[in-house]
Design a protein around this nucleic acid. Structure first.
Lengths: 236, 236
DNA sequence: CGACGTAAGTGTACGATGTCAACAATCACA
DNA sequence: TGTGATTGTTGACATCGTACACTTACGTCG
């Protein structure tokens, strides 16, 4: 596949002074001021966009600076190297995953019944469902989110948090705490349960988006999602 | 870290036998004949070696040709492009994963008791254990194995088979068939069970080698492996 | 047995990328 | 007002993937 996308993209659109934090944009926008205003943010935004379509490998430093309307080397004032940019993109992607999960959890909570055990189960399923929904809706970002070597110790880093302030790991942890509180997860099994539940769901996500399970019909994937969640629920 | 498996498939260009210092892959080894003898094989071997340390991104076409002692463009007589080389490396890596799994399965079979249900369970655990052992021993190859988009339909492609002739998917399938035969997996749940078991184990592998679970102590990973397998066993 | 078609390698070249070193424009504060 | 620290810019490499054109020598066949 020689998919060259538009290489052009340098033209006008005099977008005046650097407006703040916004998420802006892929317009090259020749800037008038010497300072960019928020180069770091712009590079990150460009990086996220590139990761969204094309995954981690598509995150190219020079292109990011191009989109930001800046010289390639300007990036080095804000990121040590491409890897650092990618790490930032990865963190942001995890934040977006967290948002997807929170959304699903919120929906589940709304439909919650009185039984705390059922509610806990529903919440955990929602966590998994949200995670996988994100993987399917944003495969590029999902892959980017986990393409950078990381450590468990950073799993609660604020940079990985969604708008609600929780990281994916923390969301999952909370759901498992609810299980424990509801008495449906024996204390002996609570330790590190995050890892096991996470593994199952993460694995399905990976297999579905670039692995051998890719290209399966949506129904099949839906079914697999349910079955994997069943497995977790029974097996935790 | 178990040592290098036989890196068999490599060296042995029928001609190269000229100078001393044997068939190491990284010696430029000035070839005397115009024809290389087995360029494709040499490139593949070099690619595998590069993937072994460094994962898929470390597979660079030019370097492979360098190690094979040919011009960069010579590679294009055997691979359409870098992606094609990577795909070949990926297939080979899956074959090596299959070998690791077969080894574990064989060990489990040796210790097999009379009870077929227990034997079946042991076999499935062995499959998972072997898969994860490969991920841990050869993280680069493991990542390379699944870095190339693929489809379920190819999961039984002979190119992905180990020396025993079975692909990882086929090994897993056989173990699940044994479950069904032993009556410990209700027929209604047999369909696509590969996907669910695979997901759990694959996810753990990914999380452990480049994901957030990386750097955990060996004991912790061992423990997680057992727990994930428990989960699968209970939850399938 | 010698000519020859053709597969397998070579040479050269182009555009792109990540990154370094030196330099210039601007802001921030004394 | 001036002076130092930030932030971008210029220019230059080394490396990569790959296209086009050419050359070499192996295998086949008249």
């Amino acid at each position: 596949m020689s998919g060259e996308q538009g290489d052009a993209a340098l033209d006008a659109a005099p977008n005046a002074a650097a407006d703040g934090a916004g998420a802006a944009a892929d317009t090259p926008a020749p800037r008038t001021t010497y300072r960019h205003g928020d180069l770091r943010g712009a590079l990150l935004a460009a990086g996220i966009e590139m990761a969204r379509r094309g995954g981690p490998d598509a995150v190219v430093l020079r292109e990011a600076t191009r989109q930001a309307g800046v010289t390639p080397n300007a990036a080095y004032r804000h990121f040590a190297d491409r890897q650092a940019l990618l790490r930032a993109v990865s963190d942001a992607a995890q934040g977006l995953a967290a948002d997807a999960m929170e959304a699903e959890v919120a929906r589940a909570a709304a439909a919650s019944g009185v039984n705390t055990a059922d509610a806990a189960r529903r919440m955990l399923r929602a966590v998994g469902t949200g995670y996988l929904a994100f993987a399917r809706d944003e495969p590029g970002l999902f892959r980017a989110a986990f393409s950078v070597p990381d450590h468990l110790a950073n799993s609660m880093d604020a940079a990985k948090a969604g708008t609600a302030g929780r990281t994916p790991f923390q969301i999952l942890s909370a759901a498992l705490d609810a299980w424990a509180a509801a008495g449906i997860l024996p204390p002996a099994r609570r330790a590190n349960a995050e890892l096991y539940a996470w593994s199952a769901v993460h694995g399905l996500g990976m297999l579905v988006i670039d692995g051998p399970l890719r290209g399966l019909s949506a129904e099949l994937v839906d079914g697999a999602t349910v079955r994997v969640l069943d497995m977790v629920e029974r097996g935790l």
